[in-house]
Simulated assay, not measured.
Amino acid sequence: MSGTAEIHQATLTPGKLELLAAWLPAQEWFVGDSDDVERVASYRFVDPEGEVGIETILVRSRGVTYQVPLTYRGAPLDEAEDYLVGTLEHSVLGTRYVYDAVGDPVYMVELLRVIHEGDTEADLSRGEKSMTVLGSGIVPVSNAASEAMRVVRVLDGNHVPGSRVPLGTLDGRWTDADGTVQEQTLAVLR
């Protein structure tokens, strides 16, 4: 297990979905409509240093589910302007800088660790959980310097890179609002 993520009882301004609805239309992989973005599920990892919040939110628009990994920081991340989703006010923690996590080294290191070790998502301090994830584990002789990570953004089963056997994967499972259980590959390590 990736630890326990502390979840505060807080008010967020703007809300996470509002922030994403403003950011998603500018992403080349998003073909939905910002007016109908809805939350499907989410999972968290824990920053070992306890400084960065790491949450991945699955959202749906026009019937397509998208994976949006985010990091939450108390100060701007150097040289990451291109990955800034926006800022929000957290009633407990103050101003939070929200980043597309693929541009945040804390997320990428934790994602790599979860896949390498065959670990899972973090437990949540408030207990609620809407999905589970599991790293596949990899052969110990793998050389991290030569590994490439691909986060799957469009979760329709057709966007998982498949030209060669991966070193490892992160797979997720959640239940849609209609009761359908979904299982998808969320990240691929090559």
Rank of each mutant, 00 (worst) to 15 (best):
T95H: 04
R173G: 07
E183V: 09
L170K: 03
D100S: 11
E55M: 04
V151D: 15
V109S: 13
L17Q: 00
D47T: 11
L93F: 10
K129C: 10
G168F: 09
L93S: 08
T180S: 12
R73M: 07
G157P: 13
A22F: 00
T71A: 05
R153E: 15
T4W: 09
L124C: 11
P166C: 06
Y99A: 04
M108H: 09
T169M: 13
R150T: 15
E51K: 12
G127E: 09
G118F: 03
A41F: 01
G74R: 11
E28H: 06
V154C: 02
P48R: 11
T13N: 14
T185M: 05
S136T: 15
Y66E: 04
H159M: 10
E18F: 01
G157F: 08
D33R: 08
W174E: 08
G3W: 01
T71V: 06
W29R: 03
V152S: 10
R113D: 01
M1G: 07
Q67F: 07
T11I: 15
G103Y: 06
T120C: 09
S42C: 03
P140D: 10
P14T: 00
G103V: 02
H159F: 10
D156M: 12
D123P: 01
V52D: 00
E55R: 02
M149A: 02
G63R: 10
P69K: 05
D178F: 13
G135P: 01
K16G: 07
P48A: 06
E121Q: 14
G172D: 00
V98L: 05
A101E: 03
G3I: 07
A144I: 13
L19C: 06
T175K: 15
L20E: 01
G94A: 10
E49K: 13
V160N: 09
W23G: 03
L155T: 11
S61A: 10
S130R: 09
E117T: 13
T11Q: 15
V37Y: 01
L77C: 03
E117Y: 08
P69M: 06
T11F: 12
T120N: 08
S136I: 02
N143F: 07
T87V: 12
K129N: 12
D156H: 03
Y107A: 15
V152I: 15
H8M: 03
V139P: 06
R190D: 15
D82P: 02
D156K: 05
A22S: 09
G50V: 11
G162F: 11
E183Q: 15
G53Q: 10
D123C: 05
V40H: 06
E51T: 11
T185A: 07
D176M: 14
I7F: 04
M131N: 12
I54G: 07
L24V: 02
Y97E: 07
V139R: 15
R153T: 07
D47Q: 07
S2T: 14
D100Q: 08
Q67C: 08
S142E: 14
L84G: 01
L134D: 10
S146A: 06
G172W: 00
E183A: 12
A187R: 08
E89G: 14
V109N: 14
